[in-house]
């Protein structure tokens, strides 16, 4: 249980990465022809799913199999 607590840190990352637009509010570099502001947020929808999948895998318990 102790080590699994650390995995909750993964869940904080999307908040930091997306709720502060100052981090990504720029045009360059363009990705797939999109300004960075847009491409970055689109990519984060996928990253978020991946982070959650890692979280679920890392914190799975026997009781989850119910």
């Amino acid at each position: 249980m102790k080590s699994s607590k650390l995995w909750y840190g993964l869940l904080v990352i999307p908040f930091i990465a997306t709720l502060f637009p100052g981090l990504y509010n720029r045009l360059e570099p363009h990705i797939f022809g999109m300004p960075f502001f847009y491409a970055y947020q689109l990519i984060w929808t996928v990253f978020c799913g991946v982070l959650l999948a890692i979280f679920i895998f890392a914190t799975r318990e026997k009781t989850d199999a119910r």
Binding site: L10, L11, V12, P14, F15, T18, L19, F37, Y38, Q41, L42, W44, T45, C48, G49, L51, L52, F55, I56
Partner: peptide, 15 residues
């Protein structure tokens, strides 16, 4: 486009 961070952070919160 706030709709994106909105529908991103909702999931780590909900999980």
């Amino acid at each position: 486009f706030f709709a994106l961070p909105y529908t991103i952070v909702a999931y780590p919160f909900a999980i």
